[in-house]
Structure formats: structure tokens, C-alpha cells
């Protein structure tokens, strides 16, 4: 059964259909929320997203995208609220303009590098972090990411480009040496 049929059954009160829908998409929503506002808040975002879906299943319009995109749209709203509560991060729609092209590199193990990249992603301004999370970590195409982020595809591309540049800069600042010399461990 396709997603639309599943949602139809949810509308009619079919618990199994809802359970299936949850199983299909909770992980993607959780990962997005985890990268955007931390693991502790991610559970709340998942819960709020699916409860919101229950309250308005009829508002989903198949012509405007997949159910996953629709769920991401709801989740994004709740992520914004979480970020606003913290108060120390910029809203998702107004990214800071900060970028350098620096790439100092260092000798670092792959696992260390992955940990550092993870930390660096968390420290990106939310709008740039979102581009990395959706396009790189969730491996979405630009069109889907643009629909979720409510911006043109070109904006997604440029945010992603800038985000990567910022990551390079942050990593370089930590290492004090070129990233390009990073030693692969496997």
C-alpha cells in the first residue's frame, strides 16, 4: 500500500496503518531533529510531529509532495520552536552570513575526524546545519530539501556550499593544520 493509502486508513481510524506510518518515518524525523536540536529534544519533536499529523491528516495534499516531506514540514516547525526556546540560535529562515574559504589541515584519525565533524555540524547556524542534515546526512535531493526548507533550490545549494566551507574552517581551527592531510584509518 502506498503512503497516501496508508494516510487514508489513518484518517478512518486504522491503528495498524498509523503504526506502520510511524515505523516508516519516525527514524528519519528523529535523525533530523537530533542533528538540529539534540537527542533530548528529538524525542519531543517526533512525538509532536506525529500527534500533529493525527490532528490534521486531511491537510496533507499529495500534489505538494510526499508524506515524508509533509512530516518534515511539521517537524521543522517544532524544531524551530525548540531552537527559539533556547534563544541562542538564529531562526531557520535567516541564516548568518559567515564564511571563509580556509582549509588548514592536520593529521587526525578517521574516528576523531568524524567526531569533530559531528561537533562542527552542531555548531553551524541552524539554516546551514539544516542544509547539511537534509542533503548530506539524510541524502535528500535538492528539490525535496528545498520544499521542506521553503526556499528555492539555488538557496539550498548555496547554503550547503557555505555550510561545507564553514565546516572546513571550524575543523581547521581545531586542528591548526590542513584537513587534506587527514590520515585515513581504514
Amino acid at each position: 500500500m502506498d503512503d497516501h493509502g496508508l494516510l487514508e486508513r489513518v484518517r478512518r481510524g486504522d491503528q495498524q496503518a498509523f503504526s506502520r506510518l510511524y515505523a516508516l518515518y519516525q527514524s528519519a524525523i528523529y535523525r533530523y531533529a537530533m542533528h538540529m536540536c539534540g537527542a533530548a529534544a528529538a524525542d519531543d519533536v517526533v512525538q509532536d510531529t506525529f500527534v500533529a499529523l493525527l490532528g490534521r491528516p486531511a491537510r496533507y495534499d499529495p500534489s505538494r509532495g510526499s508524506i515524508l516531506s509533509y512530516l518534515f514540514g511539521i517537524a521543522r516547525h517544532h524544531v524551530s520552536k525548540q531552537l527559539a526556546v533556547r534563544g541562542n540560535e538564529s531562526p531557520l529562515d535567516t541564516p548568518d552570513d559567515v564564511v571563509d574559504d580556509a582549509t588548514p589541515l592536520d593529521l587526525v584519525s578517521r574516528d576523531e575526524l568524524v567526531g569533530q565533524v559531528r561537533d562542527a555540524i552542531q555548531s553551524l547556524p541552524p539554516a546551514y546545519r539544516e542544509a547539511v542534515v537534509l542533503c548530506e546526512l539524510q541524502e535528500m535531493d535538492y528539490a525535496t530539501a528545498a520544499a521542506i526548507m521553503h526556499c528555492p533550490i539555488g538557496t539550498v545549494r548555496s547554503r550547503l556550499h557555505r555550510a561545507k566551507a564553514m565546516l572546513m574552517t571550524k575543523l581547521a581551527a581545531r586542528q591548526g593544520a590542513p584537513l587534506a592531510t587527514t590520515r585515513p584509518t581504514r
Binding site: R110, L113, V114, V117, R118, I121, V132, E136, L137, K164, L167, M168, L171, L179, A180, T182, P184
Partner: peptide, 9 residues
Amino acid sequence: VLADALRAI
């Protein structure tokens, strides 16, 4: 290297 790290994450 960055792309590899992102894929690993």
C-alpha cells in the same frame, strides 16, 4: 575527506 566524514556520520 569532509564528504567521507559526512557519509560516516
